[in-house]
Structures are given as structure tokens and as C-alpha cells.
Amino acid sequence: MKIVSQIREPIEEEMELFEEKFLKSMSSKVALFNRITYYIVNRKGKQMRPMFVFLTAKLLNGKVNDRTYTGASIIELIHTASLVHDDVVDDSNKRRGFFSINALWKNKIAVLVGDFLFSKGLLVSLENKDYDLLHIISNAVRDMSEGELLQIEKARLLDITEEVYYDIIRQKTATLIAACCSMGACSVKPDSDEVETFRKFGELCGMAFQIKDDLFDYGAEKIGKPTGIDIKEQKMTLPLIYALNHSDKERKKWLINSIKNHNKNKKRVKEVISYVKEKGGLDYAVTKMLEFKDEALAILDNYPDSEYKSALTLMVNYVVDRKK
């Protein structure tokens, strides 16, 4: 967490004020909902997404404004809503080592909490007539939903090409980080080229972030034993796609059969992981991840040195170097 503290340091004051504003933005007249949001806020993660918003704004403007806080609140509300819904969809009982909302309060309440948070995110943007910020987040929510559905559709047939895989992770994961950075830029420099530049910057960071997550499934880079969770859930990750594309007909048939029909068999999952490693799937995924990282850093190179640029550079490197 030391690196996260370093990233946060130039925006420490803004993050503390943001946390106060964020808690207020989640308030409800319903006591049950306030109890649940209190539980959510006290188990918050690293808050990388709001940090992207503030660091981008300060890189471009040297300071933030009320719109920047609005943008960060919108992002965090929508992100939190999507996590609550994801746990229901994935039937997951844990989130960041704690019980998920659906585990404690059941699916019906979790879905309603997610819906409430989504609506709060949209309402926050409307309170001050920040229609440009609303447009950014609405596009992101649409892309996230389409990305999830595309992944489900393709997983049934296991016919994901590398190009389709990038489409899925661009929509499913990268679009929200892209929204963070374009939101930060839009809050201080609306209608400028910077809004699109930093949308692209965030998208590249998000692509690298998701490929790093793919690698965790194979126990890559000293993060412990292979988990094989993605294989068990029939998710087509980049290392697996590479291995499929570089296998003969028989091996391809064995791989697809393993994922479709033997994904709960621990021995078979281990064999798949070993085979993907042997075929160079992990090395290829690392290479692609670093390409996205370098493209993101190249965008930052166009801006003068500052503590905010240094923090964003650290953030980009952290995305690919993190251990969990």
C-alpha cells in the first residue's frame, strides 16, 4: 500500500474532502439503506478511480473545482453500484475479503442498493446541470453493460479472437477508467482536446489493468499458486486465446473440451494452466500489457513535469506491477 500512499500524496486534501462529499451523496431517508452504505464506505478499496479524476484535473489545471468533486462522486457511485450488481451476477459471497452485500442482505436488497447507487450517480451530475459529465458516465455504463453481455455471448461458443477480446475488455473494464480521466479533464477544461486525450489515456491504463488481472489467474509473477478461477468460469483470457491460436487441431480440441466440460476438475485446470504457460501465453500477455502501459506513458510525456504527472506515472506503473 506504500505506492498507493505515494500516488495519493499530491491530492491528499482533495481525497479527504471527497470522502466526506461521497458519504453525503449516498444518504437516503431509508435507515436500512444508510446502514448498508455505511458498511460499503467502511470497506472501501484503494479508490484508484477518484484518484485518476483528481490527478488528471490537477495535471491540467494545477487545481480542482466543484465539478471535479462531482465527477469523482459520480464515478465512485457508479463503480460501487456495478460491484454490488457484479456480486449478485457472479453469486459471490466475498468482496475485498469481507462479506458482499448479497451475502449479508440477499440478492433482492443488493440489486435495489445497486439501482439506488446508479440513480444517485446520475442525479449528482444533474444537480448542477453538469450535462457533459452525465454524458461521459452514461456512455461508460452503456459500454460496461455491452461488454459484459458480449463476454457472456462469446463464452458460450468459446470463439473469442484476440480482437474481440480487446473489444470486451475495452468496454467491460477500460471504459470506466477512461471515464475517470476524461471526467477529470472535462471538469477543468470542458470542450477541450484534453477530454479525448485523457479518455484515451484512461482506456490504455484500463486495458493494461485487465490483462494484469488475466495473468493473476495463472499465478504469474510471484503472486502465489495459480487460481484458475477464470478457467472455471469459462472466461476467455488473453493467455488462453494465444495458446488456442497457436495449437494444432487436436490440442485445440482438448483445450476447448477442458474449458467447456472439465472446468471444475482441479487436475485438468492445472494441466490447462501448464499448457498455456508452455505455449508462451503468459509471456505474450505480458508483452501486450506493457505495450498498453507504454502507450499511456507516451501520452503523459507530452505534459510538463509536476508532482501530478509523477503520481499518474506511478499509477500507470502500479497497474502492471501490483500483486493483487
Rank of each mutant, 00 (worst) to 15 (best):
V269D: 06
K249T: 12
L215P: 04
N263S: 08
L297P: 13
Y275F: 14
P239S: 02
I273A: 01
E295V: 05
E203W: 04
G206F: 11
D301H: 12
V286W: 11
K266M: 08
F216L: 14
A243V: 05
G202P: 05
H246G: 02
N265G: 00
L204Y: 09
A243K: 03
G280S: 09
I259H: 00
E196R: 03
I229F: 12
D214R: 05
K260W: 08
M207T: 02
I241Y: 03
F198V: 10
V272K: 02
D248M: 09
L300A: 10
A298H: 14
G224I: 14
L215T: 05
E233H: 04
K222H: 13
D214V: 07
V272H: 02
K293C: 07
N261E: 10
G206L: 06
T287L: 09
P226D: 09
L282N: 04
E233G: 07
K270I: 00
V195P: 04
E194C: 00
D294T: 13
K235C: 09
E194W: 01
D294F: 11
F216R: 03
N265A: 02
H262Y: 14
I273L: 08
G228S: 06
D301Q: 13
L238E: 03
Y242C: 10
G202C: 09
Y275H: 12
E291W: 11
I211E: 06
L204G: 00
N263Y: 03
K277N: 10
N265Q: 01
I211T: 07
I273R: 01
